[in-house]
Design a binder for these strands. Structure first.
Length: 604
RNA sequence: GGGCCGGUGGUGUAGCCUGGCUUAACACACCUCCCUGUCAAGGAGGAGAUCACGGGUUCGAAUCCCGUCCGGCUCGCCA
């Protein structure tokens, strides 16, 4: 080894010890005589002192050190002189007095400052282009190390409970449902393709049939859909499947695991104990989304009844057309300027709403009872009766000084717009406790959802999810009312995990598929392997798949997006500026794969 | 595919709305010199930018207009 100990491990107990260190020059402070170097390696950093009187040769070399040079230093650990300790540093009580130094490798001046946080500070394209330097920065380095610790903890935790880690193929078969597949052309079988797995769903069910009872995998999943701050082409999930279990077993395991991770692996994070369990209908009503941010209130109120009895055309009309009217109160926002209101309206419209009704209650109003016309600030103030304003305020919880935000229209649109408006206002008003991770389970999802585009019922989770036992007979008669044994883990407005108790009976599985419009031939063609397996003693089973990337954005400090917890992520356009991915390939490679590129203009 | 925001020395920003007082400013980094206890060390000096790219308007464009590319956010999409 070129070093005898790591920089960040040095403590007062090493006082007097001779050490050899190797690492990167974090910063240098050259006083003309004495030279200080902060030397960094993967463990942290320590101050090295070079004295020209006692170590002239080493000091001469150190004077030429520059940022990010790789150097080796021999010296003696000692307690820092009285008054020069640095409480900011873990190693701040000691320093290394250098006797020898050597340059192992020089560095060009880095394109950005590696010694400081890069997230949110440096252009992300530049960071990705020099990802090896970006990851060298302490904050990104810490993110990767914490991710490692979390994953290791998961592995130990599950191993302790009898789970077996099993790998499943990356080259699998395309299934037409769900997201767009990444395809890999077959060289040996001309004209055919493998698909990268969107998840190991069917495989893990087959492992249950295979009798493993408790399976897990840190599984990479691929989806060729547009990328976002919380979505990459490939994401990693903790894939879990268990036999002979019900909902409580799966949710209890996850709650125990995530609570332990927060308690034992990370610091400075608070959670709700126990995790709230909320029914889908309840969260949709109160938050307008199935992944609510529970760090703050701003709950939505149903105002349809008041709207229906009102003379305000946009409110009453929406209800008469079969829609709903909902809203919430933004505390202290009654004084929003015209421009501010316009901004909120534009926000709502960009989220699909027809418009946004705002009603401010002047802070000068003595109370709701003492409300006068001049206290009501709204574009529709003239059409509103005072009693209606009172009723709306009562429902939304608005008082003097507050601003009611109300959307009317179809239920989906109203909920979508208001849920995002709620998140926006929660952020603007700083209502969310940054140290809180508000984990919660959402349960009792509908089994099916209506797809407007195809004018057909589709699975709201996936088609292997079991309905409630007592709802089997509703499938054909009242599909919208069928509840599923499906659950999600959410936190801070993000979906972190999704899972269900599966169907383990072939007849029942076919019944769901048949309802979804599959012919017997299609079932056999697409799901023959699973259906066949269900006929050979498939145990009752269920599972869940928590996303690790999103979880890490909650557990780390300074993660601006999912890209900050992934070592080598892609840009929103799906490119990697470091490697220049994706890239053309040799014509010979294409020929072997029986692939021909059709220029865009000639494409159909 | 749609909407919004952005692109100015190595980095981060200002200037842009209201075109000319700009020889494009500031901080950090970089280079040289000074400096023996700093830890965002300090001091003095210096170098470094065809203002993303292409076209247009104008006597004159970083600044106004159009297009393209790239990045981010977002709608669609993501069983």
């Amino acid at each position: 080894m070129l070093k005898s100990i790591s920089c960040g491990d040095l403590r007062p107990e090493h006082d007097g010890q001779s050490v050899t260190l190797a690492g990167w020059v974090h910063r240098r402070r050259d006083h003309g005589g004495v030279v200080f170097i902060d030397l960094r390696d993967s463990s942290g950093l320590v101050q090295v002192v070079f004295h020209p009187e006692t170590a002239p040769a080493a000091t001469e070399i150190a004077q030429h050190f520059r940022a990010e040079w790789v150097v080796q230093v021999e010296g003696t650990v000692r307690k820092r002189p009285e008054g020069t300790e640095n409480a900011e540093l873990a190693t701040g009580a000691i320093e290394v007095v250098a006797t020898e130094s050597e340059v192992l490798n020089e560095s060009k001046t880095p394109p950005f400052d590696v010694s400081q946080q890069t997230q949110g500070q440096v252009d992300e394209l530049l960071r990705l282009g020099y990802r090896y330097l970006d990851l060298r920065s302490a904050s990104m380095h810490d993110n990767m190390v914490l991710r490692h610790r979390v994953v290791q903890y998961m592995r130990r935790f599950l191993d302790d409970r009898g789970f077996v880690e099993i790998e499943t193929p990356i080259l699998t078969r395309s299934t037409p449902e769900g997201a767009r597949d990444f395809l890999v052309p077959s060289r040996l079988q001309a004209g055919t393709f493998y698909a990268l797995p969107q998840s190991p769903q069917q495989l893990k069910q087959l492992l249950m049939v295979a009798g493993f009872e408790r399976y897990f995998q840190i599984a990479r999943c691929f989806r060729d859909e547009d990328l976002r701050g919380d979505r990459q082409f490939e994401h990693t999930q903790l894939d879990i499947e268990m036999s002979f279990v019900d909902e409580d077993d799966v949710l209890g395991l996850i709650e125990e695991l995530y609570t332990a991770i927060v308690d034992e692996v990370v610091s400075g994070r608070r959670i709700l104990r126990p995790f709230p369990r909320l029914a889908y209908d309840d969260v949709m009503a109160r938050y307008g989304t199935d992944k609510p941010d529970l760090r703050f209130g701003l709950e939505l109120a149903d105002l349809s009844e008041i709207a229906a009895a009102s003379d305000v055309r946009i409110l009453r009309g929406a209800v008469e057309a079969g829609g709903i009217v909902k809203g919430f109160a933004a505390p202290g926002c009654a004084a929003y300027s015209r421009k501010g209101i316009d901004g909120l309206i534009a926000f709502a419209k960009s989220r699909g709403a027809q418009g946004l009704v705002t009603i401010g209650i002047d802070g000068d109003a003595p109370s709701l009872e003492g409300l006068e016309t001049e206290h009501v600030r709204s574009a529709i103030a003239s059409a509103l009766k005072l009693d209606e304003v009172r009723a709306l305020a009562q429902r939304t919880g608005a008082g003097p000084g507050d601003l009611m935000l109300i959307v009317a229209g179809g239920a989906t649109v109203v909920n979508t717009a208001l849920s995002q408006l709620r998140n926006e206002m929660g952020e603007r008003l700083g209502l969310a406790d940054a140290t809180l991770i508000a984990f919660a389970f959402v349960t009792d999802f509908p089994l099916f959802e209506w797809d407007e585009e195809t004018a057909a019922w589709g699975p709201s989770h996936h088609l292997f999810t079991s309905p409630w036992e007592e709802h089997w007979d509703r499938i054909e008669t009242d599909p919208a009312a069928v509840r599923a044994r499906h659950y999600d883990l959410v936190a801070n407005g993000m979906e972190l995990a999704s899972g269900s108790i599966r169907i383990h009976d072939r007849q029942k599985q076919e019944r769901v598929m048949r309802f979804l419009g599959y012919t017997n031939e299609q079932m056999e063609e697409r799901f023959g392997q699973l259906l066949g397996a269900l006929e050979y003693g498939a145990p009752p089973h269920g599972g869940i798949a928590p996303g690790i990337d999103r979880l890490m954005t909650l557990l780390t400090d300074h993660a601006e997006s999912i890209r900050d917890v992934i070592a080598f992520p892609k840009t929103q356009a799906g490119t990697d500026p470091l490697f220049g991915t994706p890239a053309p390939v040799q014509a010979s490679q294409l020929a072997e794969l029986h692939i021909a590129i059709v220029p865009e203009d000639d494409a159909i």
